[in-house]
Structure formats: structure tokens, C-alpha cells
């Protein structure tokens, strides 16, 4: 783990610092946001950018080895499992009639903007 080129070491420092920053931001959002649905958006910052940058930084430290491959698996796990859990959580909350705090509800009129696409 020693003897890395200075550039690689600096890059991994930067990535780990960025990852730490976004992780903490997600945590702050989790506490600051006013209600459940908005809190989920904050948590997904931790799950995507925070975890992503941290793991990338660790990958640079590990060099080219099995450890890097395992970190890659971890990243893939976050990438594919994260949204599944988030979606299940949101759907369950909506099903239990937790009312979302909305500034605007476009479900009725969105047909004008959403419908013609993809046809």
C-alpha cells in the first residue's frame, strides 16, 4: 500500500475527501429535511456520490488487485440495490397514505408534457 506515485496518492486523497463531504451532506439533509419523501432524496446523495467517491478513492489506494475488484462489487451493489430499496420504501409509504408535502402536484396535468414522448 506504500510507494504509490504522488499523483495517484493525491488523486485518492481528493476522492476520499469529496466522498466524505458528500456523505456528511447526505446526513445533514437527512436531519434537516422537513418530511419523509424529501429526506429520501438527501439519503440518496450519501448512497450515490458519497459512497461512490469514497470507494473510488479506496480503489486508487488498493492498486490493481483483488481488493479493487471487491470494491467494484461493492459499488455495483450500491448502484443496483440502492434504487430498489428506495423505491420499495417510497411505494410502501405512499401505500400507507403518508401524505407527501407538495409545492405542486403535476400528476393531473402532466399528461400534456409527458404523454407525447416515447410514442
Amino acid at each position: 500500500m506504500s510507494g504509490l506515485p504522488v499523483i495517484v496518492d493525491a488523486a485518492s486523497w481528493l476522492l476520499i475527501l469529496l466522498g466524505s463531504f458528500f456523505t456528511v451532506v447526505g446526513g445533514i439533509g437527512l436531519v434537516r429535511m422537513p418530511e419523509f419523501y424529501t429526506r429520501m432524496h438527501a439519503a440518496s446523495v450519501t448512497d450515490t456520490l458519497g459512497a461512490g467517491f469514497l470507494v473510488l478513492g479506496l480503489m486508487l489506494q488498493a492498486g490493481f488487485s483483488l481488493v479493487t475488484l471487491k470494491l467494484l462489487f461493492l459499488l455495483a451493489l450500491f448502484f443496483f440495490a440502492g434504487p430498489v430499496v428506495t423505491h420499495a420504501l417510497a411505494q410502501a409509504a405512499l401505500h400507507e397514505r403518508i401524505p407527501p408535502l407538495l409545492a405542486e402536484d403535476r400528476r393531473g396535468k402532466a399528461g400534456a408534457g409527458g404523454e407525447p414522448e416515447g410514442s
Partner: peptide, 9 residues
Amino acid sequence: ISPTMTVVR
């Protein structure tokens, strides 16, 4: 924040 619900196809 301005939370919004919408429907997309």
C-alpha cells in the same frame, strides 16, 4: 425545496 409529484410515460 419545492417538492413535486408528476407522472411520466
